[in-house]
Simulated scan of single mutants.
Amino acid sequence: MNKAELVTEVSQKMDTTKKDAEIALNAVLAAIEESLVKGDNVQLIGFGTFEVKARAARKGRNPQTGAEIKIPASKTATFKIGKKLKEKINTAKVKKTRKAKK
């Protein structure tokens, strides 16, 4: 599902226009982004937790030349799934569909 499809789903569930659903979705995403930038976690009970984790500096290799490179320390956002969502995913009987390649 991409963002446009998510907006459509939200608009149907809220019984509102796609424009209003997109505004709501963008507001939620902006709030999550702002919290993560500040270093705060975003915990949605039953759904999951977004958090920022630090990655230490490390050594790596250039795959083309084999030369050793230094990979600087960085931060990354992670998502840890909540218990209720995990249970729903593991008990759901989902029919996988493949989109035709054009």
Rank of each mutant, 00 (worst) to 15 (best):
M1Y: 03
A4Q: 10
V7G: 14
E9F: 08
S11W: 07
K13H: 14
M14P: 15
D15Y: 11
D15T: 11
T16M: 04
T17P: 12
T17F: 07
K18S: 14
D20E: 12
D20V: 01
A21L: 11
A21W: 02
A21C: 14
I23C: 11
A24P: 15
A24Y: 09
L25M: 07
A27K: 09
A27F: 07
V28R: 03
A31D: 09
A31N: 11
E33M: 03
E33N: 13
E34L: 03
E34W: 03
S35A: 07
S35I: 02
L36Q: 05
V37H: 05
K38D: 10
G39E: 08
G39V: 05
D40A: 05
D40N: 09
N41Q: 12
V42H: 08
V42W: 08
V42L: 00
Q43K: 14
L44F: 10
L44N: 00
L44T: 02
G46M: 01
F47L: 06
F47S: 11
G48E: 04
T49F: 03
F50S: 03
F50I: 00
E51G: 07
A54L: 01
A54M: 04
R55Y: 07
A56Q: 06
K59Q: 03
G60H: 04
N62P: 10
A67N: 09
A67Y: 03
A67Q: 08
E68C: 00
I69N: 07
I69G: 05
I69V: 15
I69F: 05
K70Y: 04
I71C: 00
P72M: 04
P72T: 12
A73G: 09
T76E: 02
T76Y: 06
A77H: 05
T78L: 01
T78H: 07
K80R: 15
I81G: 08
I81C: 15
G82T: 14
K84F: 04
K84V: 07
K84M: 06
L85F: 09
E87I: 03
K88G: 02
K88N: 10
N90T: 12
T91I: 05
A92I: 14
K93T: 15
K95D: 15
K96A: 09
K96V: 08
K96M: 02
T97G: 05
K99V: 08
A100K: 15
K102T: 05
